[in-house]
């Protein structure tokens, strides 16, 4: 599937109906999701025929894209009922069947659980950036993702935290490759946002075990 075609599919994905600030719910913009997934498949062959997980799947943008790029099976995990409802609608609307949703606390359910250890081929995440009320959530999500994947992990992180993230990866013996710096247009989702939208710089990073 071409990048443009994928992006146009993803543009139909509905966003959060009632975003919750505590969970830092921001929808992954379709053009970013499309690029992330297209790269994962076209450059690294990490999606087609693979067992994929999407941690903090939200409205299912990444899940849906992975499914459209012919992942064998995609499991999405999120803690929020409202997000999962919208996600399921999006998946039903797009008529994809190779997907499954679980309502759970990502770090609590999957971290230090031998049964999930390296279970997935590829793990996708657009984690909470770990600002405001959730310091460290991005790192906790990433650590969980690395535990449950035996292949690659694709993630988005604020460019301002790059040094920190790359250092963490080094500590865990994982290779972190910044594939692109993207401009993430954060629409005014919450009341405390004073401007209509804010652009922030986000790194698209591929993590993999060092051979």
């Amino acid at each position: 599937m071409k990048l443009k075609e994928l992006e146009s599919w993803l543009q139909d994905v509905q966003g959060f109906s009632t975003p919750r600030i505590l969970l830092e719910q921001y929808q992954t913009p379709p053009h970013i999701a499309a690029r992330v997934l297209h790269t994962a498949q076209a450059s690294f062959k990490d999606l087609e025929g693979k067992m994929v997980a999407d941690l903090g799947c939200g409205c299912g943008m990444l899940m849906l894209g992975a499914s459209l790029l012919e992942a064998a099976h995609v499991i999405g995990v999120d803690i929020d009922e409202g997000a999962l409802e919208v996600c399921q609608e999006n998946l039903t609307e797009a008529e994809v069947d190779n997907v499954e949703l679980i309502k759970a606390d990502v770090t609590r359910m999957m971290k230090d659980q031998p049964r999930f250890h390296k279970f997935f081929d590829t793990v996708l995440l657009n984690p909470p950036f770990g600002t405001k009320h959730n310091p460290g959530t991005d790192v906790a999500f990433l650590q969980t993702a690395l535990e449950i994947s035996h292949g690659a992990v694709y993630s988005l992180h604020k460019t301002s935290t790059r040094t920190h993230i790359v250092k963490k990866a080094g500590d865990w013996g994982v290779k972190a490759e910044v594939l692109a710096k993207l401009r993430y247009d954060l629409p005014n989702t919450y009341k405390f946002h004073k401007k209509a939208s804010v652009d922030i710089d986000v790194d698209f990073i591929r993590f993999s075990r060092q051979k």
Partner: peptide, 9 residues
């Protein structure tokens, strides 16, 4: 419910 197991504690 609705195909989604709720594992929250």
């Amino acid at each position: 419910s609705n195909g989604i197991p709720n594992m929250l504690l």
